[in-house]
Nucleic acid binder design. Structure first.
Lengths: 168, 168
DNA sequence: CTTGGAATGTCAACAAGGCTGACATAAATT
DNA sequence: AATTTATGTCAGCCTTGTTGACATTCCAAG
């Protein structure tokens, strides 16, 4: 792994003190609340929760994905996901199609109504993220991404990278 | 607020495209899982959850804090927090002392056992954060913090800043 | 071809931890 | 004395995690 070999390597190690790390941890905690606040507000009105948002986000990202696939990405049990999917399907936001090649699989798509809600949610979340990005500047954003990627578990990083490379 | 006025301002606006923002959103989602994974594993063994971790973290950060104070930081209802605090007090991890100046208040402290568990949890979390910081480098870390701070809600930023400036 | 296992998805029941509402108590404030 | 504030508690609800049991479908070994 290519270690950072910048100038004044001795001095810059200050960024690894427990105190700096602790600040990072608290920043992560408080920021994540902001990250989910806007979609949560919208969802509460409709009687949905964060789990519905996550499902719709990733169905939108890869239409036709299977339940199993979604399971691996979301990192929950199939039973948990199923409850969420059931309500989304009942409410006409998600469409589930039996696979043609393998009839055990269900391929998931957003309906028009589902796409509309997903768009509303993701717009709210994107607006805040965009404001933060603009305020912090492009170099900060690059660093933000770099740290987050290094923080992911191996499995999650695989999913993330797969998405990152899709339709770059 | 001082807008970024770096060189090639035209070109660098590319970092604000919807696609870049979406990558940031997904990075945040996947990274937060890694962020909580290690403490969650430890907590599961003891029958506690993330809520207990958060309470202990902030009691450790400001010993003697009141219930009301903790409520504002954690952003939950008193009923929710009380359930968690009750079990922590019953199990001898947290001590609650009636205030001397204002006897309505309860001041919260970690017991030795509580401090030990808190330390175990925060060590696990810090280790991962430190690894990510080291891998990403000091400039990336600065950017990471900058973006997260810009992402916080106003109230949360107030709490964060208060902590950040305490015993810097 | 049949049969047994593996993969996939569904239903039921439970627990953690959010939430609201109502209420009690004690202390401080007016 | 009356009101407000800080805290705790009870009851009940919702979302979203969990396990266990089960149905369906596919595939591969006999």
């Amino acid at each position: 792994m290519a270690e950072n070999a910048g100038p004044a390597a001795n001095e810059t190690l200050l960024f690894l003190t427990d105190d700096q790390i602790r600040k990072g941890i608290e920043a992560m905690f408080f920021a994540y609340r902001g990250f989910t606040a806007d979609p949560d507000r919208i969802l509460a009105v409709q009687g949905y929760g964060r789990a519905h948002h996550r499902a719709m986000h990733f169905i939108n990202r890869s239409p036709g994905t299977t339940v199993n696939n979604l399971l691996a990405i979301l990192g929950v049990t199939k039973q948990s996901l199923n409850r969420v999917l059931r309500t989304l399907i009942e409410d006409g936001l998600v469409r589930s199609e039996v696979g043609t090649r393998d009839r055990r699989e269900r391929h998931l798509y957003l309906t028009d109504a589902g796409a509309a809600l997903e768009h509303e949610l993701s717009t709210a979340q994107r607006d805040r993220m965009r404001a933060a990005f603009r305020q912090a500047g492009p170099e900060a954003v690059a660093g933000f991404r770099r740290v987050l990627e290094a923080m992911m578990d191996g499995d999650m990083r695989r999913h993330y990278v797969r998405f990152r490379e899709t339709d770059s």
